[in-house]
């Protein structure tokens, strides 16, 4: 029985955070593997820790999704200190009164489910930072 991250770029532990592959030449960041940098064609990458708080720079409230996907939910893009991160806005009501452009958010994790071996998948999202 163990906790497993929903994706490999989520690092669990006392301070959960996201990690990207950063081009050592130009600093471009990617959440999946690349053979060469899409920005500068460099071929060397290193791990980079992504800031765990940021600003919501785009969002939508999805009311209609593929079967099995619970709705409504807030999908968005968070500017984490210069790195754009895709994720849901969680721990708040999914409506336009509670979610706004430019709102400050921070990374938060939650349990997604448990498999037959008792392993628990941990997901992540961004929750509002109370002013």
């Amino acid at each position: 029985m163990a906790a497993v991250p929903i994706v490999d770029y989520l690092v669990l532990g006392d301070e959960p955070h996201l990690v990207a592959k950063q081009c050592t030449s130009c600093g471009a960041r990617f959440f999946d593997r690349r053979n060469a940098c899409a920005s500068c064609s460099g071929t060397s990458f290193e791990d980079a820790v992504i800031a765990t708080s940021g600003e919501l720079k785009a969002f939508t409230i999805v009311a209609f999704a593929a079967p099995g996907v619970p709705v409504p939910f807030v999908a968005g893009v968070v500017d984490c200190d210069g790195t754009s991160v895709r994720g849901n806005v969680i721990n708040t009501e999914p409506d336009a009164d509670h979610v706004s452009l430019g709102m400050k958010v921070r990374l938060a994790t939650y349990a997604v489910g448990t498999d037959d071996d008792g392993n628990e998948a941990i997901g992540f999202g961004f929750e509002p930072i109370e002013n």
């Binding site: 497993v4 991250p5 929903i6 994706v7 490999d8 770029y9 959440f31 999946d32 939508t60 999805v62 209609f64 999704a65 593929a66 099995g68 996907v69 619970p70 709705v71 939910f73 999908a75 968005g76 893009v77 895709r86 994720g87 849901n88 997604v112 489910g113 998948a121 997901g123 992540f124």
Partner: peptide, 18 residues
């Protein structure tokens, strides 16, 4: 992305309207 389950709806949305 080394996903252990479906990420659509959990990490953003893949739907065109969204």
């Amino acid at each position: 992305y080394g996903a252990v389950t479906s990420t659509d709806g959990r990490i953003g949305t893949n739907t065109m309207p969204g």
